[in-house]
Nucleic acid binder design. Structure first.
Lengths: 137, 137
DNA sequence: TATAGAGATTATAACTATTCTAAACTAGAA
DNA sequence: TTCTAGTTTAGAATAGTTATAATCTCTATA
């Protein structure tokens, strides 16, 4: 379990000034035992519940962008109207529950490695994402 | 190559009244030898170039939604701010070229079938989409 | 410890994608 | 030809996100 000191030095080490807003957001995002998925709006709601002094929406956007760039978060693509982020930045795939509108991690081992026979000329693979949409039987 | 009559009856057969706007959009979308990918905005621009009488944005949205529901189009999920659609509604996957911001179809045979060992309880798989992000080597 | 200034935060405006609304129009059945 | 349900339309409304410009705050260094 990380504490404020840890987050502070982690932020500093990656060139981000450890402000109280960023530390708070770290606590919310990275103090969980499970990884989780969120939209900016969901994150904003959690923050407003857990803090006395509010953090402005702009800062939340900025912080998420910064963490994304540093590789602490991963963006997930669902066909959607808004962006979703994942605190699990390792290689893994997702189920998307069409009924509950909910994203579920799939352990990497649960999906056989995806094998692609050809890649466009002079390109290299950056990532492979599998999205499996499921619905009630 | 389909002509206006064809589109007219195809529309009627699927319960959509063949209006001149819908027929025009059909011509643009389905008279190509290659499948293609587009955003609403890109489609709107093509329409405005190819037609004298404009089609309102609302109609373009409505029509794309209608074609989507009828299964003539497929929505594609890229991590994005807007929706993309594909005239290729068969099972296939995509490369996303991060440099050109361009989507490329992958023939179904080019990717080994994705095998999932477990599905969430009482759910069935609706679709499996693989998005392979590539960038310059 | 005080302070300057780069980097952050903030409220709010602006922007973009999409949906809604309500009036006007039209395809096609009768 | 007439009627009407289904369509189209312009424009308003909404939601997500980014930009702006003023204010604030870390932290290096004097």
């Amino acid at each position: 379990m990380s504490n404020i000191k840890d987050f502070s030095s982690k932020l500093r080490n990656s060139g981000l000034r450890p402000t109280k807003q960023r530390i708070k957001i770290c606590e919310i995002l990275f103090n969980k035992e499970k990884t989780f998925h969120f939209s900016i709006n969901e994150l904003a709601q959690i923050i407003s519940k857990e803090t006395v002094d509010k953090i402005s929406l702009a800062t939340i956007y900025n912080t998420v962008q910064a963490f994304l760039k540093k590789g602490y978060l991963k963006e997930i693509s669902i066909n959607s109207d808004k962006s979703y982020y994942d605190t699990n930045t390792t290689n893994h795939h997702h189920f998307y529950d069409e009924d509950k509108k909910e994203l579920i991690d799939i352990d990497y081992e649960e999906v056989e490695p995806v094998i692609v026979k050809k890649v466009p000329p002079s390109k290299k693979i950056k990532s492979i994402e599998v999205l499996i949409k499921v619905q009630n039987r």
